Simulated scan of single mutants.
Amino acid sequence: MMDIYRAAERLMGMQDTDWRRHANPLSVWTRFTCLPLLVLAIYARQWIGWWALPLVLLAAVWTWVNPRAFRPPEDFGSWASRGTLGERIFLARAEYDVAPHHIRAAHVLTALSAMGALPLIYGLIVLNPWATVLGLIATILPKVWFVDRMVWIHADVTQSTPGTALPDPTLPFERTTQ
């Protein structure tokens, strides 16, 4: 069965150094600009025609560059940093004891985000601003909640408290199978 989360990670080409950089809160918060910029670029075809294509390309480049654009933080204790670290644990959930309720919640939130993409796509096709904005919000809000769930996963697996200093983002020891 295809793991959509792993497929996205492979598509982005994320390596350990990229993940450390992406744990910078500036990277996490500016990451939420990627979809709105792409949507705006696509919607711009209404005003500038084919000249919107370079804007779409720029938005796609920003989506790839964003996790790599910032230095790793000195402290990985922020909500945003822990969300990134939790996502790494979630991606490697076969090696960690991630509670089933976290996995279920992540799947539900991903499905909600995908359902939000339906009015977004419709709005972009027919150039309906209300459907586009509704879809954009319905796509992004579950993603924010997903990041919050990743913070919770990080806290559970590492037995740490969100908001406290975390100078070393080393992931906990992976579960060994015998």
Rank of each mutant, 00 (worst) to 15 (best):
M1T: 13
M1F: 14
M1P: 13
M2S: 10
D3H: 05
Y5W: 12
A8W: 12
A8F: 09
L11H: 00
M12K: 13
M14N: 11
M14V: 10
Q15D: 03
Q15P: 00
D16Y: 06
D16S: 09
T17A: 06
D18R: 07
D18K: 09
W19C: 07
W19A: 12
R20V: 02
H22L: 14
H22C: 13
L26Q: 07
L26W: 05
S27R: 15
V28F: 03
V28R: 05
T30A: 05
R31Q: 10
P36V: 08
L37W: 03
V39R: 10
A41Q: 07
I42L: 12
Y43I: 01
A44N: 03
Q46E: 12
Q46I: 06
Q46R: 11
W47R: 10
I48N: 03
G49A: 07
W50C: 02
W50R: 09
L53G: 00
P54I: 12
P54K: 09
L57G: 10
A59C: 13
A60L: 15
A60Y: 04
V61G: 02
W62A: 10
W62N: 08
N66Y: 06
P67M: 09
A69Q: 01
P72W: 08
E74C: 00
E74T: 06
D75E: 04
F76P: 07
G77V: 15
A80S: 09
A80N: 02
A80T: 05
S81V: 03
R82F: 13
G83C: 00
E87D: 13
I89D: 03
F90Y: 15
L91I: 12
L91K: 11
L91T: 06
L91Y: 06
A92I: 08
R93C: 01
R93W: 01
A94W: 15
A94P: 10
E95G: 12
Y96S: 05
V98M: 11
V98N: 13
V98L: 11
P100G: 04
I103V: 15
R104T: 14
S113T: 00
A114Y: 01
G116E: 02
G116P: 00
A117P: 00
L118K: 06
L118H: 02
L120M: 09
L120V: 03
I121C: 11
Y122I: 13
G123I: 07
G123F: 04
V126H: 01
L127C: 12
N128Q: 01
N128C: 00
P129S: 00
A131K: 03
V133E: 03
V133P: 07
G135H: 08
L136I: 04
A138E: 06
A138V: 04
A138Q: 05
T139C: 10
P142H: 07
P142C: 04
K143W: 04
R149T: 15
V151A: 14
V151R: 15
W152E: 15
I153K: 14
I153E: 06
H154L: 06
D156M: 14
D156Y: 13
T158P: 02
Q159D: 10
S160Y: 08
P162Q: 03
P162Y: 00
G163C: 14
G163F: 08
A165I: 10
T170E: 12
T170G: 12
P172W: 11
F173C: 13
E174D: 01
R175T: 12
T176M: 13
